[in-house]
Write a protein that binds this DNA or RNA. Structure first.
Length: 775
DNA sequence: TGCGTGCTTCTTTTT
DNA sequence: GAAGCACGCA
């Protein structure tokens, strides 16, 4: 008996009592690094050990990563065969699954599409256009965030329209028509058989409200409810949990109010603060012992977070040694900052043999990754970016997925519009607009309108009509394959028969090649997904993949999880992780805290919590840096040290950077010079395709850098790749004056061309393509 | 209708 | 730094 519960011995007293407290309501307040995940996983394992059925446990997380990690850990204790029956996943994935099952009740097809943010924005854009509203005032992002706010608070379009307070806020923002957009948006989603992210939660609420019987079914199904990161739940999620827990009252939530960083998308810390009122007889467990970081780091973080008014009092203490002080370093520019960081890592790695996976560089915004990447690449340090533009957000991936989506749900208008003329089949914008206007006017999906097109009296030429019908036929044909064949084979067939593969194959530019490879990667991903997930039962089909693809993120695609690389990510995506060495870059006012988050005290406190999260990721060494100048919108802007640095108690920090090898004194950085350099193009050894006797003209400042198709190659819209110039691994140039034409064909080597750089590099700057001549 | 080009605009964080 | 849009040419 004792033997099988041996894992309990790995816990401290409080952790252990939290784990052993199975029935009733409980809240675990888990400070940073206090073993929160451990408690959660051990608790679930313990429940299973006590004989509770895995399928009666629902465990909700916020990220797929967290869910997967937890499942893995539980499998290790209890065995995969039991663990796989747990209902464990993100709110969105679990409830999307349930919604598909219960689709009828809420009047949706079970094959409903999930609109991602881009789809939603596109739809809003069309609606704004239809309503003839000023698109400068009614910007998609703003509208979407209003709609999202409403949905997260379970305010329907109707309720929104009749809520005078909300309408007033919109009026103050000079956007009084938002309620109309919301209404139409809803209707249009319904007609398309589509839900957006917030709908998944909102419709779940509706489902549970629809009848006692259904709610009770799920209350009885999920006898035990566990929620991770409870401080990040919004009202909609809160209500789902509340309804489910009402009957059996077996609910355990885990969270840390000090790490609440998602208020911007509706999270309410109050859910945590009010928990004991919601569930009488709540037992509260406070985990205050930090196992992760040194005393110095923990103390500095505690000291900082005390400045927030809103919080549950806690006393986090470290059991580790005192440790070294937090290093604060200043750089002249963001480029230099990146170099200093890369140098430090290089030094520690090569001289002191610290593993690359022990390093993390954290930043506030995704765009900061670029400079850091450049520096790391120059130093030959392997790195991996988490988050950022998701693999699934790439154009080519979205294109192919749109085919899948349309095949499965013909009424998915956003998918339809995306691919009706991709690859080009001579169906122009005018035709599409006319067709979709007709659909809107008749209140049907575009597909349905297209079906009837032959008989329709709209101004579309006979040839265009035929082309549209051909397209429909193609999609219909694919549909048969989807049902009958193996997911991978089907996907491959669709990719090739749709013409996507061919379209990408002819494009030999670095991006073209990388796009082609991405498609291959997606196909492999599908193969992987459908085989990996089946675990003995019926193989998963393409349908299963597509149903989930909108909810997948970057990390879900990476097969090589534990390689030796430095991790780069935003502070948000670093939550829950830990590293021996942490660098926090760009600690500047208006960047961290963000310029957008300074208006209210709440926002500023959230930024402070974010900084707290960043600091507490570090186990042993923490370096915080900032630059005095940084590129913003392509222009060099002055920066000031973040107020948060000043808030750190001086006794925990030290200034200066050990690893800055005199970069400043060497004056390598052009920003330090008075005049910008004029560069001469001299190198033509490393010629690229541009030299292949190809006549290409390049005009004005339309030069585009082409980064090697490595970790994240830049994709540059629909610009002609032939006009792109490869400039070493550096980026951004304005050149040749406006409108001046350059001929790349058959030019003398060493031709001098004046280039105006407003972005710097090092002295190794060379243009590596072949020949250039100014005409 | 397709395509290249020049201009304008906008950036927080994410399921 | 990148994407969308409008314009103008083929």
């Amino acid at each position: 008996m004792e033997q099988s519960y041996s894992y309990l011995r790995e816990l401290n007293d409080i952790q252990r009592s939290a784990v052993e407290n199975i029935d009733g309501a409980s809240m675990v307040i888990a400070g940073a690094g206090s073993g929160k995940t451990r408690v959660l996983t051990f608790k679930i394992a313990h429940m299973l050990n006590l004989g509770i059925q895995p399928h009666s446990i629902i465990a909700l997380t916020f990220t797929n990563k967290a869910a997967r990690e937890m499942k893995l850990r539980i499998s290790k204790i209890i065995g995969e065969n039991t663990a796989k029956y747990l209902w464990m996943g993100t709110f969105h994935s679990i409830f999307a699954k349930i919604l598909r099952f219960e689709a009828e009740t809420i009047n949706y097809p079970s094959s409903f599409s999930i609109y991602d943010t881009l789809d939603s924005k596109n739809l809003i854009k069309t609606i704004v256009k239809e309503l003839k509203l000023d698109s400068k005032v009614y910007k998609e992002a703003g509208i979407l965030s209003r709609i999202s706010f409403a949905k997260n608070n379970l305010i329907s379009a109707q309720a929104y329209a009749s809520n005078s307070r909300i309408r007033q806020i919109d009026s103050y923002g000079s956007r009084p028509e938002i309620y109309r957009i919301y209404k139409i948006y809803e209707t249009r989603c319904q007609a398309a058989g589509a839900m957006d992210f917030d709908d998944i939660l909102m419709k779940t609420n509706q489902l549970f409200n629809s009848s006692e019987k259904i709610l009770e079914k799920y209350q009885d199904k999920f006898q035990y409810i566990l929620v991770d990161e409870y401080q990040d739940t919004n009202y909609s999620q809160y209500m789902i949990i509340h309804k489910l827990a009402m009957k059996h009252n077996n609910i355990c939530v885990v969270g840390d109010d000090a790490q609440s960083i998602y208020a911007f998308r509706g999270a309410r810390i109050e859910n945590m603060l009010n928990f004991k009122n919601d569930y009488p007889n709540t037992r509260i467990f406070k985990l205050e012992q930090n196992y992760r970081s040194t005393q110095n780091i923990v103390n500095a973080a505690n000291n900082l977070i005390k400045k927030n008014k809103n919080q549950i009092p806690k006393n986090i203490f470290s059991v580790k040694s005192l440790g070294s002080k937090i290093n604060i370093s200043q750089a002249f520019t963001d480029t230099e900052e990146a170099y200093i960081i890369a140098n430090s890592i290089s030094d520690l790695h090569f001289r002191e043999h610290v593993n690359l996976s022990d390093f993390a560089i954290l930043y506030r915004t995704n765009s900061q990754s670029r400079t850091l990447e450049d520096a790391l690449r120059k130093k030959n340090i392997a790195y991996k970016i988490f988050g950022g533009i998701s693999f699934y957000q790439r154009k080519e991936i979205k294109d192919l997925v749109a085919y899948f989506r349309l095949i499965i749900n013909h009424h998915d208008d956003e998918a339809f519009k995306r691919i009706i003329n991709y690859p080009k089949r001579g169906i122009g914008a005018t035709t599409i607009t006319r067709l979709s206007n007709f659909a809107t006017y008749s209140g049907i999906s575009i597909w349905r309108a297209a079906e009837k097109i032959a008989d329709l009296d709209i101004k579309i030429s006979k040839t265009s009509k035929n082309k549209i019908l051909e397209f429909l036929q193609m999609i219909e044909n694919f549909k048969l394959d989807v049902i009958n064949e193996d997911a991978y084979e089907t996907a491959k067939e669709i990719a090739s028969k749709s013409g996507i593969l061919k379209d990408l194959h002819v494009d030999k530019s670095p991006e073209g090649i990388s796009r082609y490879e991405n498609i291959q990667e997606l196909l492999n991903g599908i193969k992987d997904y459908t085989t990996r997930q089946q675990s003995g039962e019926t193989p998963l089909s393409l349908v299963d993949f597509v149903e989930n693809v909108s909810l997948l993120t970057n990390e879900d695609n990476s097969s090589d999880e534990h390689q030796e690389t430095v991790s780069l990510m935003t502070v948000h995506s670093a939550k829950g992780l830990e590293f021996k060495h942490v660098f926090i870059a760009g600690m500047e006012e208006d960047l961290f805290p963000s310029a957008y988050s300074k208006d209210s005290i709440q926002d500023l406190e959230e930024e402070r919590r974010l900084f707290y999260v960043a600091i507490t990721r570090a186990e042993e060494h923490l370096t915080i840096s900032y630059a005095k100048k940084r590129y913003k919108w392509g222009k060099l802007a002055n920066c000031v040290q973040s107020r948060f640095i000043k808030e750190l108690n001086p006794k925990f920090i030290e200034y200066g950077d050990k690893y800055n090898y005199g970069l400043r004194s060497k004056n390598t950085f052009f920003e330090n010079k008075k005049s910008k350099p004029k560069l001469t193009i001299i190198d033509n050894s490393n010629s690229s395709k541009l030299s292949d006797n190809k006549k290409t003209t390049i005009a004005g400042n339309n030069f585009r850098p082409v980064r090697k198709a490595s970790a994240r190659s830049t994709y540059v819209g629909n610009r002609n790749p032939d006009t792109q110039i490869k400039v070493g691994s550096f980026v951004r140039h304005e050149m040749f004056g406006k409108g001046k034409v350059i001929d790349i064909d058959g030019v003398e080597p060493n031709t001098k061309v004046r280039i105006k750089f407003d972005r710097s590099g090092t002295k190794t700057l060379l243009l590596r393509f072949a020949k250039l001549k100014v005409i």
